[in-house]
Design a protein around this nucleic acid. Structure first.
Length: 802
RNA sequence: GCGACCGUGGCGGAACUGGUAGACGCGCAGGACUUAGGAUCCUGUGGGGCAACCCGUGGGGGUUCGAGUCCCUCCGGUCGCACCA
């Protein structure tokens, strides 16, 4: 009996982590890979608190997949970096009173340590940080490219303003009227000159490509809803004095039921359409609407308000003069900023009409109380269109008005252009110089980056001016076109721009004269598999797709979709609730890594539940994983020495091949919890059979390597291998062996289980029936009655109906 | 309100195209080894019943020889959108 050493995870993990560094184990040849596989995971924001279990869960799941692909023979590139610009970092810096430029490097240092500690297969040669001028030089370069292509433009716009952040927020950062980061702070409306990216021009493509992208279904649905395509028509209502009011509607079939029009309070025609006797009231209402922030206006459950303009427009179908109103439930940002109101068939219009006693005329025959919103019905009160189904009628009405120049079929999107301006300090300055003569001029590419100056007082300004405006030497710069004194743009760009292209940079981090090297990019991109959280389904993922499409059109990349395959992982919750600082239920992995080691902790996180669904973190179960690893440790040490001359016992061989089959398909499908369970079953059987030999254990170690990489290395070496286990190949299985042996068949009588038979695989129905009728308990239930029908499922089940 | 997903033992969770419900793990109970055991090993573990059996996948109904799985309906939960015309 050889003495089995104690399994000491700390020692094992330290040893192998050092070996990986020394041997450059995780640094693939980026220039001459045989089978490149770009395994990307969402880079973290390096918070001061360090990595939490949520990050670790995500990174572990992605790392397992990368390691699995590597064992299958791919050259896996698995980079990591830091998304370190942005309001998160800046607010924290403000809170502790230290410049983020000083804080971030420390945080990154902590993250690096933690990321190495958990055993990620990262290629550290290609680490990046968005705050590095070598990186954001190219973020600015992308801005310039988009600007020159007409895809970046300035617009004075009503924006969401968070008084706590003292900055604008994207619509996506406003949650029910409150700031994403300050749930107790209402967002206000301000009008500021902002930079926008024309993402809406790509709406159709962004939507269309979702049909073929291999993405988690939930993520695709979120993006589809966000883009929000609606098909309909623009209809024109004319006023007696010749004004044309265009409205967008998805229900042209209900035109005969349009009994009034509503314009947004900001609509440009409001002045012209206001009758003198209504002017005072209209003015007051508009003032009130303007004072209300955009977000409050959008909260849908408040009572409808509005004012009659005192004038009328002609319904193009009925020829009737219908009143024109303004109301804040109509939004200037969507469609034409005006609607035709069909109170009988629209809930909002119905509420409004009821409140102001406007006529309600049903035009669709339907069951139930008004308003009836369904499109399944036929028209009534609609002249020659009576009796037609809604959809048909809609098309015909549009065609009819089209001939009179009063309608155009149209598609609308909910998606808005991307506002990238932030009136803050901690971001890449937008590379524009304003010149009195030349207007906004982009900083020439050779002058990039526009470095973010270090300034002591980086507090934002309640007036909405970026802190950079206070730095006079920086602020004034000569116009690149005419040389006259100009002023720099003082806004910085949105963090989502930093992360919208980082995957392009990873393979090319060593080049300073180009953002991404063309041959490298050709070799490694698009990303092979991207794994990340669904919290970024509509922001990061949509923006990255847009930037990639734009870069492709401008000839800078050769593909239009950056992430052909994306999988969303689940969320780790704790005590039934999302982990958050405010709840105080955030789990920091360090203590677990210390007590159990990375391998046990990694496997434990994966065993918690399905990776793509998440799970509830509790630490009671972790001992189960450790016991499992201890058993494998024991088996592997017993298996040292020469392989036995005799083959594996048949039951073990069969189970081995079944296990390889299951672990292979489950790992491929990210079903890590069941893959681990299968390995446990296998180990239980091997121990039961006393079959812990080399040929039983080695394939197991390879399968375990993605899950418990250090542990597998240690045992692989203990079995005498000199090469790292990452250079082993994933075991293959023999379908015949996996299927060998007898099967147990369930015998049912009238659908209830009455017996089980062990029978050789592939038996015919007749044989099984004969056997079954010999079974005592089956006989009891058949009870001499004639068998009316038998249902036989090969090798699984027999059902006798009597 | 709309959209998506989900309700399975004491707990986390398994169950391929409808075909043995509860794999695997935790916990628990009993036993073994021990000075001791929070170590390890063995046995048991959905509920009821001495048993034969019966009942069981949120509730109710349906399709089927057969339903956790499909259909209808109700209840509960999570996430996303939210006056988008």
């Amino acid at each position: 009996m050889t003495q089995v050493p104690i399994y000491d995870p700390q020692a094992v993990e330290a040893r192998w982590q050092a070996r990986w560094v020394a041997d450059h184990t995780n640094e693939p040849d980026l220039d001459r890979p045989r089978q490149p596989f770009y395994n990307l995971m969402m880079f973290p924001y390096p918070s001061a608190e360090g990595l939490h279990v949520g990050n670790m869960f995500a990174f572990t799941g992605a790392d397992i997949y990368g390691r699995f692909k590597r064992l299958q023979g791919h050259d896996v590139f698995e980079p990591i970096g830091f998304d370190a610009f942005g309001i998160h970092s800046e607010n924290y810096a403000l809170q502790v009173g230290t410049n983020p430029a000083k804080l971030i490097p420390k945080n990154i240092e902590t993250f690096r340590r933690q990321l190495r500690r958990f055993g990620g297969m990262f290629d550290w040669r290609h680490e990046l940080s968005t705050t590095d001028p070598r990186y954001y030089k190219w973020t600015q370069w992308i801005f310039v490219k988009l600007f020159k292509a007409g895809l970046a433009f300035r617009k004075k716009a009503a924006v969401n303003w968070c008084p706590k952040d003292m900055s604008v927020l994207a619509n996506e950062q406003v949650i029910n009227g409150y700031c994403e980061r300050h749930p107790d702070t209402r967002v206000e409306q301000r009008f500021l000159e902002q930079w926008f990216f024309a993402i809406t021009r790509y709406a159709e493509r962004l939507l269309k490509n979702l049909d073929w992208l291999d993405w988690s279904a939930s993520t695709r649905t979120l993006q589809r809803n966000w883009i929000g395509r609606s098909e309909g028509a623009e209809l024109v209502f004319e006023t007696p004095d010749g004004h044309k009011i265009a409205v967008f509607t998805t229900r042209p079939d209900t035109l005969f039921g349009a009994t009034y029009l509503v314009l947004a309070p900001e609509h440009p025609l409001v002045d012209a359409l206001t009758a003198d006797e209504q002017r005072a009231r209209v003015k007051a209402y508009r003032r009130e609407a303007q004072a209300t922030d955009i977000v409050t206006r959008r909260v849908g459950d408040k009572a409808k308000t509005g004012v009659f303009l005192g004038s009328y427009a002609r319904n193009p179908a009925t020829g009737e003069a219908i009143p024109v109103w303004i109301a804040d439930y109509v939004l200037m940002e969507y469609g034409t900023g005006a609607i035709m109101a069909v109170p009988a068939h629209d809930r909002r219009d119905f509420e409004f009409a009821t409140a102001f006693k406007l006529p309600i005329r049903p035009v669709v025959r339907a069951e139930g109380p008004l308003p009836t919103v369904s499109e399944d019905g036929v028209l009534m009160n609609s002249g020659e269109f009576d009796g037609l189904p809604c959809r048909d009628a809609g098309r015909r009405i549009v065609a009819w008005l089209l001939s009179k120049g009063l309608a155009t079929p149209q598609v609308q999107y909910r998606l808005h252009d991307w506002c990238i301006s932030r009136q803050r300090y901690w971001g890449p300055p937008i590379p524009i110089i304003y010149c009195d003569g030349c207007g906004p001029v982009p900083v020439p590419e050779q002058d990039l980056p526009v470095e973010l100056p270090f300034i002591e007082d980086f507090r934002p300004d309640a007036a909405g001016v970026s802190p950079l405006a206070r730095h006079k030497e920086w602020y004034f710069a000569p116009c690149p076109q005419c040389g006259a004194q100009g002023r720099r743009e003082t806004d910085v760009s949105d963090t989502f721009l930093d992360s919208a292209w980082y995957f392009l940079r990873y393979p090319s981090t060593e080049f300073d004269d180009r953002p991404w090297d063309p041959p490298r990019t050709k070799t490694w991109l698009p990303v092979t598999t991207y794994i990340g959280g669904n919290e970024h389904a509509v922001l990061h993922l949509l923006y990255s797709r847009f930037i990639t499409m734009a870069l492709q059109e401008l000839g800078h990349v050769h593909f239009e979709e950056p992430f052909p395959k994306f999988r969303a992982h689940g969320l780790i919750i704790k005590d039934g609730a999302k982990m958050s600082k405010s709840r105080g239920n955030v789990v920091i992995p360090d203590a677990y890594l210390q007590q159990w080691g990375a391998d046990t902790f990694r496997m434990y996180l994966m065993f918690l539940g399905p990776f793509q669904e998440g799970g509830d973190f509790r630490d009671e179960g972790i001992t189960g994983i450790r016991r499992f690893l201890d058993k494998v440790w024991q088996l592997a040490h017993e298996a040292r020495g020469p392989a036995p001359s005799s083959a594996l016992p048949p039951a073990v061989a069969r189970k081995l091949h079944q296990t390889i089959r299951k672990v292979t398909t489950d790992t491929e499908g990210l079903d890590y919890n069941t893959a681990i369970a299968a390995m446990m079953e296998y180990v239980n059987l091997v121990r039961e059979q006393g079959a812990g030999t080399r040929d039983a254990v080695e394939p197991l170690l390879v399968m375990l390597a993605p899950y418990a990489p250090h542990f597998a290395e240690e045992l692989w070496a203990a079995l005498g291998h000199e090469q790292s286990v990452v250079s082993a190949s994933w075991p293959s299985y023999d379908e015949r062996l996996a299927a060998a042996g007898d099967v147990e068949i369930v015998v049912q009588v009238n659908g209830k289980v009455r017996g089980r038979l062990t029978i050789s695989r592939g038996a015919t129905e007749a044989q099984v029936v004969e056997q079954a009728l010999k079974d005592e308990s089956v006989r009891k239930f058949v009870d001499g009655q004639p068998v009316r029908k038998t249902i036989y499922v090969q090798d699984r089940l027999l059902n006798l109906v009597v």
